[in-house]
Amino acid sequence: MPDQADDLPPPSRRALHALAADAATGDEPAFAEVHRRLAPGLRRLLLDRARGDDALADDLAQKAWTGAWRALTEGRYDPQKAALTTFVYAVAHKVWLQHLRTGGRADAAAAAYADLGAPGAPHAAPDPADAAGLAQTLDAVRRCLAEPDPDAAPSAAPGGLTQDERWLLRAVAAGASDRVLAQRLAVAPSTVNARKNAAYDKLRRHLAVRGHLPDSAER
């Protein structure tokens, strides 16, 4: 509708979810704006994975954006279920897994980056455009790790993790050893281990309730 289109702000001033909605209809300028905002950060992430190989990072980025475009225009992305940035990230992660598998590094490297977003088919060949499941899982994890709304009741925090537990999960993901964590928390390493287990249990329950875990959940 020309009149409504004339009232829309330019792509550079629109929110990501609005741009995604337009891109899903084949609006290339909207997708270009999404690309403009996310491409630098995404490339840095891929450059990390590629251990500084610029050419590889560029190739992976190109595949990721192609996959993202395909996913948007094929209706594989639901903005109500995952943030666009998380979805684009998930697509890029799938591209990375595909690269590992086709490069003959399926066993070792893939074990480090298991296709965790495909419950029930953990070792299926990843289609980059089919990243909705992983994106939703990652957003569920992000909700658990995010600081809760200060106006909300403490019990309303997603996953019910305490501030210490959120910090603990972040620190462990960053590579902190139990020894370092014990020193910082001024507790015994065994206590750190117990607190980690408790935090993971909460996260696991939160994901399971929302259907993000494979059928064979295990510790």
């Binding site: 990501l16 905002r37 996310l38 630098p40 950060g41 995404l42 840095r44 992430l45 943030a83 940035t85 998380t86 684009v88 990230y89 998930a90 992660h93 480090a112 980056y113 298991a114 965790l116 992983l134 899982t137 990652l138 957003d139 994890v141 992000r142 790790l145 999960l169 972040r170 462990v172 993901a173 960053a174 993971y200 996260l203 994901l207």
Partner: peptide
């Protein structure tokens, strides 16, 4: 733990945007 790492990377992408 891997999921947490991936989620934090996605968070970082959002921050960079």
């Amino acid at each position: 733990n891997t999921l947490v790492r991936l989620a934090l990377e996605a968070e970082r992408l959002e921050h960079s945007a």
